[in-house]
């Protein structure tokens, strides 16, 4: 069974050139990372590319990982998210069209998706404390990779309001998470 500790050990082994450990990490994490990317880029070929790029990076840079960077899973998610955002912006080079919004969940779906987070998780508690629109704006930006403008279009709210909600929402979230 894969645990944060086994992932850490495998990453250390990858840094030493252990291909079996590399395969184990791929098996344990690729579905999650692929899903994270696919949610952002919304194209299987781009999500596959982001996943490939991420694991090539893992092979060459496993030695860069330190516990100070957070959990291994967090480190991997960061890599695939940032790569996906870069791919999306470099390739599409345009804002989402109205049609694309069909693939982005409606606001009530966004709210209910938070139900899948364990009640015990501090993030869940802190997200629940935010105003619904603020919470949804943060989800759309972080999980779905939407720009401020795209969040504004999707929620049909003014761009300035969206920017303000996200900024203030993150400030509130930080205060709550540090409690």
């Amino acid at each position: 069974m894969t645990t944060p500790q086994t992932l850490e050990r495998d990453l250390q082994q990858i840094a030493l050139g252990d291909t079996a450990a590399f395969r184990r990490v791929y098996e344990a994490t690729s579905a999650k990372l692929y899903s994270v990317s696919l949610t952002i880029v919304r194209r299987t070929d781009w999500a596959e590319e982001a996943l490939q790029d991420t694991f090539i990076k893992v092979w060459h840079r496993a030695g860069d990982y330190t516990v100070a960077k957070g959990s291994v899973m967090s480190w991997l998610i960061s890599m695939v998210r940032y790569r996906s955002i870069d791919l999306l912006r470099n390739r599409a080079n345009q804002e989402l069209s109205t049609d694309d919004f069909d693939e982005i969940p409606a606001t009530d779906t966004l709210d209910s998706s938070l139900d899948s987070l364990a009640d015990s998780k501090q993030l869940r508690v802190c997200m629940d404390e935010l105003q619904p629109t603020t919470r949804q704006a943060i989800q759309l930006a972080f999980v779905y990779g939407l720009s401020h403008q795209e969040v504004s279009d999707h929620l049909r709210e003014a761009l300035g309001s969206v920017k303000s909600w996200i900024r203030r929402g993150l400030e509130s979230l930080k205060r709550c998470l540090q409690r």
């Binding site: 967090s74 998610i77 987070l117 993030l123």
Partner: peptide
């Protein structure tokens, strides 16, 4: 800090196999 906390939001995404 933000990565460690916000990444929990990705737990809401349905898992798909590559």
């Amino acid at each position: 800090f933000w990565e460690e906390h916000l990444h929990e939001l990705t737990d809401t995404i349905p898992i798909q196999q590559p």
